[in-house]
Measured scan of single mutants.
Amino acid sequence: MDPFVVLVLCLSCLLLLSIWRQSSGRGKLPPGPTPLPVIGNILQIDIKDVSKSLTNLSKIYGPVFTLYFGLERMVVLHGYEVVKEALIDLGEEFSGRGHFPLAERANRGFGIVFSNGKRWKEIRRFSLMTLRNFGMGKRSIEDRVQEEARCLVEELRKTKASPCDPTFILGCAPCNVICSIIFQKRFDYKDQQFLNLMEKLNENIRIVSTPWIQICNNFPTIIDYFPGTHNKLLKNLAFMESDILEKVKEHQESMDINNPRDFIDCFLIKMEKEKQNQQSEFTIENLVITAADLLGAGTETTSTTLRYALLLLLKHPEVTAKVQEEIERVIGRNRSPCMQDRGHMPYTDAVVHEVQRYIDLIPTSLPHAVTCDVKFRNYLIPKGTTILTSLTSVLHDNKEFPNPEMFDPRHFLDEGGNFKKSNYFMPFSAGKRICVGEGLARMELFLFLTFILQNFNLKSLIDPKDLDTTPVVNGFASVPPFYQLCFIPV
């Protein structure tokens, strides 16, 4: 058959498939802009700032609406009420993970971030239990974070109060905490193996944040037939998995079943207990991918939040002064901060919360999916439909947070200066898919920041009023603009 005829037939089939998918069930789905064949609503979305586009569309179609990214149908949730109703009140029905062709290629359905069903539930339950087990290797997770915080302070001392970009050092600290939990080992910041790991993690975040990856996920045929950065992403992930597998083999040879040292040991012990169960989800494949998931999810998000926190503290020296006064009063100079201190430091706690609220790190979270046909607000959402959640619409709700575009710790303080919780605080998402490392991340943010401010004054290279804190939105995360500062020993 003539190649031209084959091409026309293929394009015609794709067009018909697109029209059929977009028209099927439209009477039951939430409203939304009319999609174009094949490309859907992509032309109506700013790929570099999806969150802003969703906010604009919500003003037209309401808090629940339908979009098509290519052939992929998505239902968008915008605003606290619908997000709570879906992710919390109907948590089980909305607990699936959205379709990610690239991740599915890399992870093969294993791990904790992109798995679904029984596998996801069992691996998540085990990971939560293990991360909360403060007795691994007779050292609590808090001990590990405190140790890394001391190392971080010593690295900052080496800058000798000269101007520096904190990106690298602030990236090393949370990565080392995860390494300590998974591998029972922290690395020197100049260790070549550690630097290679950091390089792969950072490069992957840069790649994932590009519009090209959005295109690959919406048109998965590209993955096999086109060159691009997605190939580098898959190569980096394969490198990390190979490295983790080597460490798993080392653990198998040296493990003491009665004295687990780290996450890998705990997983291997669980595998041993379930070795007679042919349906067990505790396999080497799941261990390797879960460890890679924890490394990827637990490094860049925390380091970016820390980097943004220091920029905001530079911009608002009056806030920094209040935090340091609270540190001096509650902790002093002669001991290290600990998590028990947080309950006695409402202002510092409010500042950490406000940093996370203000920066809105992951504006749309990772997409969910419905696990069955769901009736939601008089609409029928078919099983498997991807759910896109606007966390921006919750964290920047102007009824809950007056002047949401302003950095103001009073958003989390009552009139008496006591810490005030808010149900709208969802930087880790909400419901059954809430970030498994939430507790660890909150511990790291509090301890790293208090250790830094206990030991250093922060000095800006320019007038604080002239510092730009506008986030650089890159399609996946909101990151701070480049800046330098000086760490002046107190």
Results as ranks from 00 to 15, higher is better:
residue 466 D to L: 12
residue 217 N to K: 10
residue 153 V to Y: 02
residue 387 I to G: 00
residue 5 V to R: 06
residue 31 P to R: 08
residue 367 P to M: 04
residue 416 G to K: 13
residue 488 I to G: 05
residue 53 S to D: 04
residue 134 F to W: 12
residue 349 D to L: 09
residue 156 L to M: 09
residue 431 G to D: 02
residue 168 F to D: 13
residue 124 R to D: 03
residue 395 L to G: 03
residue 48 K to S: 11
residue 410 R to A: 13
residue 390 S to F: 02
residue 271 M to A: 11
residue 190 K to E: 12
residue 417 G to S: 09
residue 413 L to T: 05
residue 318 E to I: 08
residue 378 N to L: 03
residue 480 P to G: 06
residue 342 R to K: 13
residue 357 R to Y: 00
residue 158 K to G: 11
residue 63 P to F: 02
residue 451 F to H: 15
residue 205 I to W: 14
residue 458 L to D: 01
residue 122 E to Q: 12
residue 172 C to R: 15
residue 429 S to R: 02
residue 474 N to G: 14
residue 466 D to I: 10
residue 134 F to A: 13
residue 408 D to R: 04
residue 180 S to W: 08
residue 428 F to H: 05
residue 182 I to C: 06
residue 24 S to A: 08
residue 469 T to G: 10
residue 13 C to S: 14
residue 225 Y to D: 04
residue 425 F to A: 05
residue 256 D to N: 10
residue 422 S to V: 03
residue 290 T to F: 04
residue 416 G to P: 06
residue 394 V to H: 02
residue 193 Q to M: 13
residue 67 L to Y: 04
residue 54 L to D: 01
residue 329 R to M: 13
residue 89 D to Y: 10
residue 66 T to Q: 06
residue 42 I to S: 12
residue 463 D to A: 00
residue 284 I to V: 14
residue 367 P to E: 01
residue 416 G to T: 14
residue 169 I to A: 09
residue 461 L to T: 14
residue 404 P to T: 08
residue 37 P to V: 00
residue 95 S to T: 07
residue 184 Q to V: 07
residue 325 E to Y: 11
residue 191 D to S: 09
residue 119 R to T: 13
residue 366 L to C: 06
residue 260 P to R: 05
residue 110 F to S: 09
residue 351 V to R: 00
residue 215 I to E: 04
residue 363 P to W: 02
residue 77 L to C: 06
residue 413 L to V: 06
residue 106 A to K: 07
residue 462 I to G: 10
residue 39 I to P: 03
residue 160 K to Q: 14
residue 134 F to P: 14
residue 477 A to I: 12
residue 434 I to N: 11
residue 240 M to E: 04
residue 254 S to D: 11
residue 405 E to M: 15
residue 382 P to T: 05
residue 149 A to L: 03
residue 270 K to E: 14
residue 168 F to E: 12
residue 214 Q to R: 13
residue 371 T to W: 03
residue 119 R to Y: 05
residue 363 P to G: 04
residue 181 I to P: 00
residue 303 S to D: 04
residue 355 V to F: 05
residue 113 V to G: 07
residue 351 V to I: 05
residue 4 F to I: 08
residue 196 N to Y: 13
residue 393 S to F: 01
residue 210 T to H: 09
residue 71 L to W: 15
residue 112 I to A: 06
residue 327 I to Y: 00
residue 288 V to D: 02
residue 40 G to Y: 00
residue 353 H to Y: 06
residue 111 G to R: 03
residue 256 D to T: 07
residue 142 E to D: 06
residue 73 R to A: 07
residue 350 A to R: 01
residue 199 E to G: 12
residue 356 Q to A: 06
residue 371 T to H: 07
residue 120 W to L: 04
residue 385 T to F: 02
residue 51 S to L: 00
residue 113 V to L: 14
residue 406 M to P: 01
residue 273 K to A: 12
residue 353 H to T: 06
residue 353 H to L: 02
residue 97 R to D: 03
residue 10 C to I: 13
residue 80 Y to A: 07
residue 434 I to Y: 11
residue 145 V to S: 03
residue 126 F to I: 05
residue 309 A to F: 04
residue 215 I to V: 14
residue 481 P to Y: 06
residue 280 S to F: 04
residue 484 Q to L: 07
residue 355 V to N: 00
residue 224 D to P: 11
residue 2 D to Y: 13
residue 361 L to D: 01
residue 20 W to D: 01
residue 113 V to K: 12
residue 157 R to I: 08
residue 275 K to A: 11
residue 192 Q to S: 14
residue 13 C to L: 11
residue 55 T to C: 15
residue 275 K to R: 11
residue 416 G to N: 15
residue 304 T to V: 12
residue 27 G to D: 14
residue 111 G to C: 03
residue 102 L to T: 08
residue 399 K to Q: 15
residue 417 G to Q: 09
residue 452 I to P: 03
residue 273 K to L: 12
residue 369 A to F: 06
residue 385 T to W: 02
residue 15 L to Q: 05
residue 166 P to V: 05
residue 408 D to Q: 06
residue 47 I to L: 15
residue 123 I to Q: 05
residue 453 L to H: 04
residue 244 I to W: 03
residue 476 F to D: 05
residue 250 E to C: 14
residue 300 E to G: 12
residue 377 R to P: 00
residue 121 K to P: 03
residue 432 K to W: 09
residue 59 K to P: 02
residue 185 K to Q: 13
residue 348 T to E: 00
residue 232 K to Q: 10
residue 93 E to P: 11
residue 170 L to S: 05
residue 232 K to I: 11
residue 8 V to L: 15
residue 369 A to N: 15
residue 117 G to H: 08
residue 295 L to V: 10
residue 428 F to W: 05
residue 118 K to I: 12
residue 166 P to G: 04
residue 438 E to K: 09
residue 215 I to N: 05
residue 268 L to E: 00
residue 325 E to V: 10
residue 400 E to A: 10
residue 73 R to P: 14
residue 91 G to W: 05
residue 396 H to E: 04
residue 209 S to A: 10
residue 305 T to H: 00
residue 366 L to A: 04
residue 64 V to T: 04
residue 131 L to G: 03
residue 68 Y to P: 02
residue 165 D to T: 04
residue 350 A to I: 02
residue 208 V to I: 15
residue 35 P to W: 06
residue 134 F to C: 12
residue 280 S to L: 05
residue 283 T to P: 00
residue 98 G to M: 11
residue 91 G to N: 11
residue 22 Q to F: 09
residue 11 L to A: 14
residue 22 Q to R: 13
residue 282 F to R: 01
residue 476 F to G: 07
residue 286 N to K: 00
residue 64 V to F: 05
residue 472 V to G: 08
residue 131 L to E: 03
residue 76 V to S: 02
residue 20 W to I: 13
residue 388 L to P: 00
residue 481 P to T: 09
residue 34 T to C: 13
residue 170 L to P: 03
residue 113 V to T: 14
residue 429 S to L: 03
residue 84 K to A: 10
residue 110 F to I: 06
residue 143 D to Q: 10
residue 56 N to V: 12
residue 305 T to D: 00
residue 258 N to F: 08
residue 339 M to S: 15
residue 391 L to Y: 03
residue 361 L to Y: 05
residue 122 E to Y: 06
residue 357 R to D: 00
residue 358 Y to T: 08
residue 63 P to K: 06
residue 325 E to F: 08
residue 151 C to R: 10
residue 381 I to M: 04
residue 70 G to N: 04
residue 350 A to W: 02
residue 258 N to Q: 13
residue 161 A to L: 08
residue 355 V to Y: 01
residue 415 E to W: 06
residue 350 A to H: 01
residue 286 N to F: 00
residue 132 R to A: 15
residue 405 E to V: 10
residue 131 L to K: 00
residue 39 I to V: 14
residue 105 R to S: 06
residue 240 M to A: 06
residue 210 T to M: 11
residue 184 Q to L: 08
residue 113 V to D: 03
residue 92 E to P: 09
residue 407 F to E: 00
residue 328 E to T: 09
residue 276 Q to K: 12
residue 11 L to D: 04
residue 459 K to S: 08
residue 130 T to C: 13
residue 294 L to S: 00
residue 438 E to L: 07
residue 397 D to C: 08
residue 435 C to R: 00
residue 370 V to M: 05
residue 159 T to P: 03
residue 57 L to A: 05
residue 55 T to N: 12
residue 178 I to M: 15
residue 184 Q to N: 15
residue 326 E to F: 00
residue 376 F to L: 09
residue 171 G to H: 07
residue 277 N to D: 12
residue 73 R to I: 05
residue 140 S to E: 06
residue 41 N to K: 00
residue 458 L to I: 15
residue 51 S to P: 12
residue 45 I to M: 12
residue 280 S to A: 07
residue 201 L to F: 08
residue 144 R to N: 11
residue 416 G to R: 15
residue 240 M to S: 04
residue 463 D to Y: 09
residue 362 I to D: 01
residue 311 L to S: 04
residue 409 P to Q: 02
